[in-house]
């Protein structure tokens, strides 16, 4: 049966993607290594910190078999500093620096939520990740309520930027959106994509006349080729 969803990931799909992020757990029970489809897991030996995908960490946490070590950026002091940064600039704050690697790795497979993630930058899945962690493991996060408040502020500041960014949209041009989060892409896609598409259609006449002019110039220069293109258009 064919999928009936519109293009682009929906919020539940973004959350599914986010559950592949690696987090650090502190096991409370032993668990031998497992041969999973996504690669073998490391054996869990308390109290050694071990990186695990979020879905597995949440499963262990719900059964009280492990604690989750929150990523360093999910703390009041880090979030406060990032919030300062966000309010002082019209652009999104920088994402964590990319590791040097010969194969191109991208979120959710970057180690941006483990215990040794940089404390001063929001990763791509910041919103979903912090929501899931606060929901399932709020007792592992120091001053969870303060963190919740800061996250809400961050979200508002960034949403305002996303809306304000629409003003710079211009027909046919590219729009740079470095630092945007996964959930923000999912929420903004229909609107931003729609505006970019709409402006392009409004500017389509200008583009066609430009192509024709270029075709004519090309035709004068090389002879023949440009004329053929014209024939095909009519």
């Amino acid at each position: 049966m064919a999928l009936t969803l519109p293009p682009g990931l929906t919020p539940p799909e973004v959350a599914f993607l986010c559950e592949m992020e690696l987090v650090t757990v502190i096991p409370r029970q032993r668990l031998e290594g497992l041969q999973l489809l996504g690669g073998p897991t490391v054996p869990l030996i308390p109290p050694h910190r071990t990186p695990l995908p979020l879905w597995l960490a949440l499963l262990l946490k719900r059964q009280n078999r492990a604690n989750i070590f929150p990523p360093p950026w999910l703390s009041p002091s880090s979030l406060d500093a990032i919030l300062q940064l966000e309010t002082s600039s019209p652009e999104f704050s920088d994402t964590p620096p990319l590791p040097r690697s010969t194969t191109p790795v991208s979120p959710p497979f970057l180690p941006s939520a483990t215990a040794d993630a940089p404390p001063d930058a929001l990763p791509y899945h910041w919103l979903e990740l912090s929501t899931l962690l606060l929901e399932a493991a709020s007792d592992d996060i120091p001053s969870a309520d303060h963190v919740r408040r800061l996250l809400r502020d961050l979200r508002e500041v960034r949403m305002a930027k996303l809306r304000a960014g629409v003003e710079v949209l211009e027909g046919g041009r590219e729009v740079k959106m470095n630092g945007v989060g996964a959930m923000e892409v999912s929420e903004g896609r229909a609107f931003i994509g729609g505006v970019v598409d709409g402006l392009r259609k409004l500017g389509a006449g200008r583009e066609i006349s430009r192509r024709e002019r270029e075709g004519e110039e090309g035709g004068l220069g090389t002879g023949g080729e440009g004329d053929n293109e014209d024939d095909m258009e009519y």
Partner: peptide, 28 residues
């Protein structure tokens, strides 16, 4: 995912831009 050496050209407009690793763009 990688630095793209050649500038990305948007056909029909006089726009081109550079894409470095990690850059996010909305484009056709």
């Amino acid at each position: 995912l990688r630095n793209i050496e050649e500038p990305v050209v948007i056909e029909g407009t006089d726009t081109d831009f550079q894409m470095r690793r990690g850059d996010v763009y909305v484009v056709r």
